[in-house]
Design a protein around this nucleic acid. Sequence first.
DNA 1: CGTTTAGTTGACCGTGCTCAAGGGGCGTGG
DNA 2: CCACGCCCCTTGAGCACGGTCAACTAAACG
Lengths: 245, 245
Amino acid sequence: MHSPDLKNTQAVVRRLNALAPLSDAGIAALVKAIGERTLRAGPGEDLVCEGDRPDRVRIILSGWLTRYKTLEDGRRQIVNFVLPGDTCDPQIYLLRQMDHSIATLTPVVYAEIEAARFEELLAADRSLAEAFQIEMLVTMAVQREWVINLGRRVALERIAHLLCEIFERLRPVGLLEGQSCAFPITQMDLADATGLSVVHVNRTIQELRANNLIVLRERTLTINDLAALKNLALFLPNYLHLRAE
Amino acid sequence: MHSPDLKNTQAVVRRLNALAPLSDAGIAALVKAIGERTLRAGPGEDLVCEGDRPDRVRIILSGWLTRYKTLEDGRRQIVNFVLPGDTCDPQIYLLRQMDHSIATLTPVVYAEIEAARFEELLAADRSLAEAFQIEMLVTMAVQREWVINLGRRVALERIAHLLCEIFERLRPVGLLEGQSCAFPITQMDLADATGLSVVHVNRTIQELRANNLIVLRERTLTINDLAALKNLALFLPNYLHLRAE
DNA sequence: CGTTTAGTTGACCGTGCTCAAGGGGCGTGG
DNA sequence: CCACGCCCCTTGAGCACGGTCAACTAAACG
């Protein structure tokens, strides 16, 4: 494993640590397992498809992905973004079939751990088992918040809320640079994530720009006034369950 | 524990068994734990409030509940329904704070199991641990499907989809009577669950009635043509991950 | 260079919201 | 026993948020 991957592995540890404290032994075991099998994928690839039999866990070292599902008639809905440090589905191998797909938005580097090997890890260190369990609970909480976002927020609030969420999720993995972060999500993806049309996403983003809340260009997001954006979005970070506030 | 509770306990076992096969020892341990502490709640009570520290697991023996969250300005969104046989949050005691509330829709009978006692159960029987883990995964899958429902289905499809989901979730716990089931959800709750207004929910239900797809009155839902309703809703049951189809 | 992908703009339209009023069933208290 | 209030459902009218369709620009890429 070469240096950038090592740095990214540290991001994974930081992320889990932000949810629950890891033991040194747990960290060592996890880092070792990650080092055993590191893979790469290009942008726009399906890493997992609906209908696949899940049999392994993927820990994202770098890059962004989406979980999504497509209706028979082509309508697509993104149900979540998978960010660096996130684990794709600890435990999902208990199900016999994937009910959704996972695609890369950017080039992605990830560690792959077979189900049995992953179970070993959890059994060997209680702090790891807890951390992954909590990660799952937080993913559920995020999913619930998306339901609220789609159900009860208007377009402007909705997009603002999504931006706040991504920003705050990038913080514990050290991917913020001041008020800015990478933002490889196209307006089309944003539309599929917020249940809006591309046209309306475009107009909504322009409104956020006009209000001087954000700068979004060349795949970089800058939030000029985070407090104001959160206020507009009715954003409360409690559902992310981060230890350090 | 008297007879109706015993019958309801069997529903819990049936439900978990539909997700993953339980061992006899696991069933016995679970039934015993449920019998230790059975409680009742009236309709319209908050069983759990946002901000509470979670410290126990609740297994619903009978009655319906909602998980919901309220925005600062009063807008409310129901993120899920909790049905008989469901377990309120195995593992959620790992988090320090509830990020949403749970309220009863009807009178509810439920078993309460302290976190430590619940961990004992899981540790003692692997099939129980797996079944509860799978229940959690299925709850996540349902949550994802709600995002799709709110994001990409129009009102008519959306309500139809919710009706199909509830119907199919009641099946494994034996709460269907032919084409009918109890349906204690008011149109206001339906509105908060689907992200629509009460007025529009009312009109949409009338359209389903006019198309002869459903009968909904006196808290009872009858689905005249389940196949047609599923078709209209673009409903595919794969996300419920039930073993017997 | 042509082609593709992402972003932008305009015009028009429709789904679903808001506001407002009224009806029916049921429990409670006078 | 009736009256009242409350909850839930229903209906009408007008409107707005966001969708659709279409065209155009700019950058990226082979």
